[in-house]
């Protein structure tokens, strides 16, 4: 079995199985816990539902924090958008998703894929640079660095494979798939789960504050 066959076959399959099971386990294992009851009378009888706004409104820092969070926000947005576009936008990825789900959509031209991949990698470097430069602000743990590496690897290998640079394409492709498999398998057990938690976390706080008539 060649590296590529291993990557495209058992490796990615096992990683997806771990990811599916892990995400379900962690989401259900937390969300099925007891619900606390706040018996106090809400400020506005029907105002609590307004708290759900926070899920969306927190997508951008409020004016109060615009200046202090500008670097982190802008770079993080660049990273997330570029990564999302690359993950969902280039032909090989769409082909992979189609083979799993049957869904497909038009792809971005390759030069855009390369540009976005480069942007994603550059923004990730910008983020780790700041994390390293300001240890007091970030309080980084080993997990933060491991996560960074695991996120950076598929971007780097993908970019190299996509642009046909470096080792032979099938090796690069295999490394890309393997690093993605690592990311998939790692995802449910790391802070990358924030991809799901952010909705619940924001909504909870939004509701708790809306209960008191405060919009956050």
């Amino acid at each position: 079995m060649s590296l590529l066959e291993f990557a495209r076959g058992p490796a990615i399959h096992a990683a997806l199985i771990i990811m599916a099971a892990g995400i379900a386990l962690r989401l259900i294992g937390v969300l099925v816990l007891t619900r606390g009851a706040d018996l106090s009378r809400p400020r506005d009888a029907f105002g609590n539902f307004k708290g759900y706004r926070t899920v969306f409104s927190r997508a951008w820092p409020s004016g109060e924090f615009t200046t202090t969070t500008r670097y982190q926000t802008v770079v993080a947005y660049l990273f997330h958008i570029a990564t999302l576009l690359v993950v969902l936008g280039i032909v090989p990825h769409i082909e992979f998703i189609t083979s799993l789900t049957g869904l497909s959509w038009p792809a971005l031209p390759n030069f855009l894929g390369v540009a976005l991949g480069t942007l994603a990698l550059a923004s990730l470097l910008a983020l780790i640079g700041r994390r390293l430069a300001k240890p007091a602000v970030y309080n980084s743990t080993l997990g933060d660095y491991v996560t960074w590496v695991i996120v950076a690897l598929p971007l780097l290998t993908g970019l190299m494979a996509f642009a046909h640079v470096g080792p032979r394409y099938e090796t690069m492709l295999a490394l890309h798939i393997l690093s993605s498999a690592l990311l998939f398998a790692y995802m449910p057990f790391s802070k990358l789960m924030h991809a799901f938690w952010f909705i619940f976390s924001r909504a909870q706080s939004g509701l708790a504050y809306a209960h008191k008539g405060v919009r956050i």
């Binding site: 937390v30 982190q72 300001k134 933060d144 938690w197 619940f200 976390s201």
Partner: peptide
């Protein structure tokens, strides 16, 4: 959920 959510973004 809150304990799970922190990403150390600082």
């Amino acid at each position: 959920v809150w304990l799970e959510s922190c990403i150390h973004c600082g």
